[in-house]
Design a protein around this nucleic acid. Structure first.
Lengths: 112, 112
DNA sequence: CTGAATCCACGGCGATACTG
DNA sequence: CAGTATCGCCGTGGATTCAG
């Protein structure tokens, strides 16, 4: 398998990837702790999320060797280019998820 | 949480949803066995995938009470409206996943 | 402050066997 | 032909703990 679409969905389907990218899009460059504060409930999974995004070239990691150490994250150009298709998905969700909910309620009403 | 975007990603992030929708988009109305033949390796999970899509109002199920029984599936207008944002995602994947692969290779080369 | 490593529980996936 | 029911496994998410 491993078609490009499937792999992309595996990436952005990750529970925290969407929120992380959205935070970096809204606020630009952010420190680790700033990201953690903006994404409620992310706990320590944020580290792995950022590693994956960094590995995929979507997020850039900058270490400032001060004391204590400071680490910033920001979207790469490749990461920014992903915003547009994701935004389309978000628009569809906000426009149509109410219909999905209605369909679900109707389906569940008929069955059990 | 349960923001619309997250729920949509949970739906289309499902392993077989993308391929199922793509098959129904390409070929229109299809029988269960035709779908199963077009989606390699789907096994019996196709049933659950179709149930979920039907429940969400994205796919319509039509039963023809013949002998043996015949069941057809097709995209609803709501399901068809989802094609456009998904297509954007697919286009991004085909255009940029090679860059992601390159970034991964570079990352893995530097680390271990 | 940042992040690595580990443990655990849950849910999804795939396979198998059986029904109308 | 078109499902339904069930089961073991594995991966993932979450929390906790330890380290630079």
């Amino acid at each position: 398998m491993s078609c490009p679409s499937r792999r992309l969905l595996d990436t952005i389907g990750d529970k925290w990837v969407g929120l992380t990218i959205a935070a970096l899009d809204t606020d630009g460059r952010l420190r680790f702790s700033e990201l953690a504060a903006r994404i409620e409930g992310v706990s320590q999974k944020l580290t792995q999320t950022l590693r994956n995004l960094e590995r995929d070239g979507l997020v850039a990691r900058t270490v400032t060797p001060s004391v204590p150490v400071r680490v910033d994250y920001e979207l790469t150009p490749l990461g920014e280019s992903l915003l547009e298709p994701i935004c389309r998905l978000k628009e569809w969700a906000e426009a149509h998820m109410a219909e999905v909910d209605a369909a679900r309620a109707e389906y569940d009403r008929r069955r059990g």
